[in-house]
Design a protein around this nucleic acid. Sequence first.
DNA 1: AATGAATGAGGATTCATTCAT
DNA 2: TATGAATGAATCCTCATTCAT
Lengths: 219, 219, 219, 219
Amino acid sequence: MTEQARRAQIVGAAIETLAELGYAETSFKRIAARAGLSSTGLISYHFKGKQELVDEVRAEVLRRFADFVMGFLDRSDTAAGELRAFLVANLRFMRLHRSHMVALMQVRPHVSARDEGEDLRKMADLLREGQRAGEFRGFDAGVMAVFILALRNGVLARVAEDPDLDLDLCERELLEAVRRATTADRPVTGAEGTEGTDRPPGGAAPPRTSAGQPRGTRG
Amino acid sequence: MTEQARRAQIVGAAIETLAELGYAETSFKRIAARAGLSSTGLISYHFKGKQELVDEVRAEVLRRFADFVMGFLDRSDTAAGELRAFLVANLRFMRLHRSHMVALMQVRPHVSARDEGEDLRKMADLLREGQRAGEFRGFDAGVMAVFILALRNGVLARVAEDPDLDLDLCERELLEAVRRATTADRPVTGAEGTEGTDRPPGGAAPPRTSAGQPRGTRG
Amino acid sequence: MTEQARRAQIVGAAIETLAELGYAETSFKRIAARAGLSSTGLISYHFKGKQELVDEVRAEVLRRFADFVMGFLDRSDTAAGELRAFLVANLRFMRLHRSHMVALMQVRPHVSARDEGEDLRKMADLLREGQRAGEFRGFDAGVMAVFILALRNGVLARVAEDPDLDLDLCERELLEAVRRATTADRPVTGAEGTEGTDRPPGGAAPPRTSAGQPRGTRG
Amino acid sequence: MTEQARRAQIVGAAIETLAELGYAETSFKRIAARAGLSSTGLISYHFKGKQELVDEVRAEVLRRFADFVMGFLDRSDTAAGELRAFLVANLRFMRLHRSHMVALMQVRPHVSARDEGEDLRKMADLLREGQRAGEFRGFDAGVMAVFILALRNGVLARVAEDPDLDLDLCERELLEAVRRATTADRPVTGAEGTEGTDRPPGGAAPPRTSAGQPRGTRG
DNA sequence: AATGAATGAGGATTCATTCAT
DNA sequence: TATGAATGAATCCTCATTCAT
């Protein structure tokens, strides 16, 4: 068996174990058992230590997720669209690779790489970009990034506990809630924009083609 | 030393250890060391097992938090006001008792009591109440409850990692984001709109005065 | 509470615990719980150590047993009668004070006093006396003493596991078996009365009348 | 070192420790020390838990004993002969493998398998068989089985405490006592031989020569 | 005489890791 | 590469005993 394949196999078993039992109950013994390995020594042979395995789990999930998310992003050309695509991609990924996402949550506090701020940074950048384009209102991008990832994580944590959670409903509600939280109020009557202050300078049209439809008419 | 005092001391040391090292690294040995106890046996003497200690940590934090949150809620008489007060109380509590909240997060997956759904249920009830009163728009209350608690947890997780996080800013942004996500679009007419509401109250006073105002305009 | 009463209470609880859970599972904590004591410290206060308690358990049971057995022995004037009375007394005591006997068995290997040989010695003396009197045949008294106490212990161990054991039947069979093992063959012909001497006293009279009947005729 | 060999080594050390110190004082630490292991973890590595080790100790001793007893039984064709062979085998085994037998006694109350009733059942069956064949008198077979195993256990317990016990003497006396207890009275008149059947035919014959001899003098 | 908290050694067991094969 | 036995520290927990009150 090739080195790479072996590592992948071990990482896969680790992900399943983490998702099922949580970090504290995930031992080499249990990972080896799930992978059908004859010895925990094999894990130590392929990974310098537990830390490296944990880091690799994280990297693997993020890699898979990045691949997955690509298909949702490449057709967006606005920040709001990209944000929406990001959220949709997350929700869909949860459904298809629930254990991967749960494992990621479990592993997060024990990961050596302290680049998880990177997610936040990239999200904040996206938000700022949208603000510059006039798509978003004038919130603090750094904080809003925390919020949006928090929403993602919260849904993830919830679905980890309640597998019957309606992810379609979640997706719809999440998109709407985030749209409202991030975009300026639009006037029901007349031209929008009365909230001058939080209105981004440029006048760019929001990427709201579908999600952007105001249900606001119901007022 | 009295039993009650000793238990409190141990719980306190456990909270600090959990907040600092996380669940997996929190052992009786470390707790005993932090509490200045002569042996881990003393912990087992006062608690039937690790589970009881963990449960007690959770109960203690929730007790403190409930006490704390009281001062923010009792003057609210609308659902929106109560929601806002809840969020404010959470943020403030994070600042004053950061380790308590972090410990709570760490302990959550290992707690025996499975009433964490209760938080969700109560929040959903509050939201539905607000919907009946016309304060909130027509979202799915169960899912929105997940979102709101997710936001709280997300901020908490963030502040656990970055102690320099500006919680005042977070509070303002969180209130505004939640207000936007939960309430219907408002007509541009009328002066109030510009968000006088999302201004953090003077002292501990919850923003009930404005929030409590029926936005009767909406039908 | 008087010292003596306290010790008795503790010994009593220890006996019950030993009988129910066995030596290895009998701790001061469990004894204290059963006795309704507030602390295991009280046991250490009244007994110098676990060893003293264990020894006292043994002494207490033997004391009770000795008292009990008196009523069976005092009217016997032959060795065979005394032996029979001893066996009967043992069986009866098992029924009335099962936990005492079971506790004695449990405690036996851990007792400091090495005078358990005394039982053997006394039994051997009795047997030798009966041999001198012509009541018993020419076996090795020391070994036969081992056998007889083994039979007692075996029945005890059995009744400890199977509380439904028919002790009446056991008694009859035991008396007959021991009689046969210890006495010389008797001719079928001739009056059996040769053992008139070893007749047990009035009251506790063993059911020898039937068991004593030689079924030998069928040979 | 192979797994099987290691397990055998650990079981061996456990047997010795049990025989020497008794169950309550037999810890993994002591077993490891006697076996020359570097840590108790090695025992846990080879045995799932203390219970498995204890069960294995029992199984090992019974296996050895079964093998040993085979050589004594296979040439017997009567119930009485088989009973005698069983007793002889037991006594001989005690001499050759004293610690095994003592360990078995120590371990008995803590063994998970509850098939110790099986010994009793098999013995009772043998006795009933002998009764049907006219070799034994009309005792209660179930109770007599208790007696016979009690005698075996009693001798074993005695030899555990007094290694100088004369097992040859024990054997002779035990065979004679059991013969008398189980067989019908024989008429004094006439040459013995009435029980010719229960004499084991072949050469492995136990010390039947003397035990079988009527001490006819006693008439 | 009694309490009950405290002690520290010892219990079995799991852990990640090492190493000879 | 892979095996699986070995290691020893660490896990939670129970134990008999001590001691101030």
